[in-house]
């Protein structure tokens, strides 16, 4: 019983609960929620924010913060799509290239933050301006309306097609969704099954202790930003394939979306706490909300406000709960003193 109670009190559980409530509300209001094509559309829409959220999760756990990733990946994506414009080989090559470029940009972030101990917010604010500046100012990025040939196969691949019998509308679940699944599985393995993952938690939880036990705090921090860059880059390419084109400003301002997903999923901004499953719940919650407002006949110009209100309520409530739990007094008179066991 105790274990179940502990499980239910986690922020992840709360997020899941709200998500389920949201599903029910949308179904009641629109009657269209639990249809096969709607679910397919939703799943497809989780791909891009989901991949980015994994990277952000890793950075947050290590105690860092990155708001430059939309700019970073727009830049990396553009460079990749331009370099591989006439490439007809395997699609893995441009993905590797994009990961390399975005990883390097992420390393740039990480090294400045970890070496000089500057506030990550300020540094990534500056690098965000830097990346947009390079993309628009130097490279003069324009929309790429047709993706290079190498992406065709992946772009056209479909996992399934769902048709709504009532409306006749059909939706496809694109092949890139599998990339999202892959990133999720890798992230989960990384965080839970590798020593590196535990080191991330350690550095986020108590960086000076990590230093003392011999963890290379500098490289853990830098590597987290590298991962954040790589995942963002992959997400950008996936987005281009889902939408069918690349637009340099498409992801402008996207960081708040992703960060709120990770935070609502139970990740702590101060580091050391977070989970893949919680982040998934956060992605589902917010992305479903984003998409479903149209389903519920909410006019476009109301949507941002509605999402904003719900996000603030969610963030406020989770902050309130954290505050309450840390305020409890020691309960002196209720304490029982545990004894040291006599072994020998």
């Amino acid at each position: 019983m105790n274990k179940i109670k502990k499980l239910l009190s986690l922020p992840e559980s709360f997020c899941l609960l709200i998500t389920i409530v949201l599903f029910i509300v949308i179904q009641l209001r629109s009657g269209q929620f639990f249809t096969s094509n709607n679910i397919t559309d939703l799943l497809a829409s989780y791909t891009v924010p989901g991949i980015m959220a994994m990277g952000s999760l890793i950075v947050f756990i290590s105690g860092g913060l990155d708001i430059s990733f939309p700019a970073l990946c727009s830049l990396g994506g553009f460079i990749t799509l331009t370099v591989f414009k006439d490439f007809t080989g395997s699609v893995i090559i441009p993905f590797l290239f994009c990961s390399l470029v975005c990883g390097l940009l992420g390393m740039f972030n990480g090294v400045i933050i970890a070496k000089f101990r500057f506030a990550p917010l300020i540094v990534t604010l500056a690098t965000e301006a830097l990346f947009w500046g390079i993309l628009h100012g130097i490279l003069r990025a324009r929309e790429i309306s047709v993706l290079p040939a190498c992406f065709e196969k992946l772009q056209d691949s479909v996992i399934w097609v769902a048709t709504n019998p009532e409306t006749g509308i059909s939706s496809q679940l694109p092949g890139v969704f599998l990339i999202f699944v892959g990133v999720v599985i890798l992230s989960s393995l990384l965080l839970r099954k590798t020593v590196y993952g535990r080191k991330l938690f350690a550095v986020g939880g108590n960086p000076s202790a990590a230093e003392n036990v011999g963890i290379n705090v500098f490289w853990i921090r830098v590597s987290a930003y590298i991962i954040s860059g790589i995942t963002a880059g992959i997400a950008c390419l996936c987005r281009s394939m889902i939408i069918g084109n690349y637009h340099p400003n498409a992801l402008y301002g996207y960081e708040y979306n992703v960060i709120s997903m990770v935070v609502l999923g139970g990740c702590s901004l101060s580091g050391g706490r977070g989970s893949v499953i919680g982040t998934i719940f956060g992605v589902i919650l917010i992305q479903t909300m984003n998409l479903s407002l149209t389903l519920m006949n909410v006019p476009t110009y109301w949507q941002k406000f509605c999402t904003g209100v719900i996000m603030i309520i969610g963030i406020s409530y989770s902050a309130y709960r954290t505050m309450k739990s840390s305020q409890t007094l020691s309960g002196v008179m209720n304490k029982t003193d545990d004894k040291v066991k006599e072994v020998k």
Binding site: R198, F201, A202, G204, G205, N206, S208, A209, A210, N212, V213, G272, R273
Partner: peptide, 11 residues
């Protein structure tokens, strides 16, 4: 054993 124990409170 450091003075602040250098333990990780989140683990």
């Amino acid at each position: 054993i450091w003075q602040d124990f250098s333990v990780f409170p989140n683990l």
